[in-house]
Design a protein around this nucleic acid. Structure first.
Lengths: 244, 244
DNA sequence: CGCCAGGTTGATTTCGCTCAAGCAATGTGG
DNA sequence: CCACATTGCTTGAGCGAAATCAACCTGGCG
C-alpha cells in the first residue's frame, strides 16, 4: 500500500506533490514534462549505497520516499554523517554543477525510492530556465549556513548539548507530539552514527543517554525516543538567534 | 610606498593583478571597465568593522590589500572566526545573491584596502555574463566543502591536532621558509581568537603552545611563530586525502 | 601612576576517551 | 535444534585532556 502510494507519487513529476517544495518548483509544465520523461525511478533497500566518494557525477537524485544519509570520511577511515535527506530533497547537485567527483557517501537509511535525472537533462533544464540555477544556488548557500552554524555549535556546546540539539533537530523531522505535549520518534540512525555526528565515542553517547533518562528528560528504548519535557531540553541549548 | 602601491593596484580593475585569480576573471574588457567605473575603494584601520550581522546587503567587497576576518556569533555572544580572507577574495556575495541580510561579522585584521561594488552593478554583471554566476557558485561550493572538512576534523582531532592544523593552514598564507627548511610567520589573530577557532579556551591554547615548544616543534614570541620542524607537524595531522 | 587588555601559570574538578567485559538480538552452519 | 560467531549496545574502571577558577605578569595608555 505504502509502496503503491510511492509508486504513484513517482509516476510522473507533474503529479509529484514533493516537487512543489523543492528546487524543481520553478519549472513550467513543459519543462516538468521533460523532467518526468527522463527521470528513472528506483527502489533502494535499507543500507544500500546510492553513490560513493570518488565516483564521477552522472546526474542528481530526487528522494521520493524514505530517508538518505550523506556521509563524509577522512583519511583514517572515520566516517561522519553530515546530514540526513528526506523526500523532496535533491542529492548530488554539487558534483554535477561543478563537474566534480563525488565527495560524499550516500546511503539509504530505510527502504527508499529515488528518481535519477541524468546530467544532460539537468544541464538542459539549467540552460532553459535560469531560475533553476538560482534555486540550486540558494540551496547550497543554505547548506553553507547550516554547516557554519554546526561549526559554531561544536565549538561552543558540550557533548550533551550537541546531542540534545541533534535530538531536537531530528524530532522536527521525525517526531510526533503526544496529547500531553511530550514528543516521540523513531531514530533514523544507529547510536554509533549519532555519536559520530556529535564527534563523540559511542560509549560516551550511551552515558549521555543514561544521564538524560536519570534527569527524567527522555526515555530511550531501542530506536524509539520519548522526550518527556522537550521544553526543558530546548532551553538547555539556546539556539543561535534567527536574526543573525 | 606600500600605500601607493595599494592605491595604484586599486586604481582600475583593468590593471588589478588580483582580478586575474578571483571571480571577476571571467569578465571581458568592457565588463571590467564597468566594474572599474562603479567600484569605490576605501581604506580600513586594523580592527575596523566592514559589515555586521543583520545589516542588509548593499553590495560586495573585494580585498585589495590586508586581511579580513569573517566571524559568526551565537546567542550567548560567543564569537567564532569562520575564515580569514586575503587580497583577491570577494566578501559578502552570499547575502547579495540571496537578497538576504548579513549573517556574519567582517573586520579588518590589519590596515586594509577594499573595493566596494554596489548591488545594481553586480546584478548587471551577473545578467550580462552567466559565467560570473558560475564562478560564484563554484566559490560557494568550495566554501561548503571546506566547512564540511572542518566539521570532520573537529569531530576527529584533539585540540592539539586542530591547532597544529590551523597553524599549518595559516602558514600556507602567511609563512616564509627559512634557509634551513623551518618556517615562520606573523599570526594574524589574537590567541583568544585562535583558541575559539579550534573550540578551546584560551588557557588551553596557551598550554598547547607550551607543549609544542617543549617538544621543540615551534617557538612563539608575541605574534611571531617559528615552526622548526614543519614536517613533523604535518604528519601529526594526516590531512583528508584529496581524492575524497 | 593606576588601569586594562592580553596572555601565562597553577590548582582543582569535570568530562570524555580507552580498554575491557558483558549482554541481548540476530544470523549461520552443522 | 543447538553451538557459535557477529553486531549493536551498555557498563565499569582508570586515566588523560580540557574546563574552570584564580592569581599574576606584561606592555600600552590615559
Amino acid at each position: 500500500m505504502a509502496k503503491q502510494r510511492g509508486h504513484l507519487r513517482g509516476a510522473s513529476c507533474l503529479t509529484c506533490q514533493l516537487r512543489q517544495c523543492n528546487e524543481w518548483r520553478v519549472l513550467n509544465e513543459e519543462e516538468t514534462r521533460l523532467l518526468a520523461h527522463h527521470r528513472k525511478s528506483r527502489d533502494y533497500r535499507a543500507g544500500e549505497s546510492i553513490f560513493s566518494v570518488g565516483e564521477p557525477s552522472h546526474g542528481v537524485y530526487c528522494i521520493v520516499s524514505g530517508a538518505v544519509a550523506i556521509r563524509k570520511s577522512d583519511a583514517e577511515g572515520n566516517v561522519v554523517p553530515i546530514r540526513i535527506s528526506y523526500p523532496g530533497d535533491i542529492l548530488g547537485y554539487r558534483s554535477l554543477l561543478l563537474n566534480a567527483h563525488r565527495r560524499y557517501h550516500s546511503e539509504a537509511l530505510s527502504p527508499s525510492r529515488l528518481c535519477f535525472i541524468d546530467k544532460p537533462t539537468v544541464k538542459m533544464l539549467l540552460d532553459h530556465n535560469p531560475a533553476l540555477g538560482q534555486q540550486f544556488l540558494q540551496r547550497i548557500a543554505n547548506d553553507l549556513s547550516d554547516a557554519h552554524d554546526h561549526l559554531v555549535r561544536n565549538a561552543t556546546l558540550s557533548n550533551r548539548g550537541k546531542f540534545v540539539h541533534l535530538l531536537l533537530a531530528l524530532m522536527n523531522r521525525h517526531g510526533c507530539t503526544a496529547t500531553d505535549g511530550s514528543r516521540f520518534m523513531e531514530l533514523p540512525l544507529s547510536r554509533r552514527d549519532l555519536a559520530s555526528m556529535i564527534g563523540a565515542r559511542h560509549e560516551t553517547l550511551s552515558r549521555i543517554i543514561g544521564r538524560l533518562e536519570e534527569d527524567g528528560l527522555a526515555r530511550f528504548s531501542g530506536r524509539t525516543v520519548h522526550l518527556t519535557r522537550p521544553h526543558s531540553l530546548l532551553q538547555e541549548v539556546r539556539q543561535p538567534s534567527p536574526l543573525d
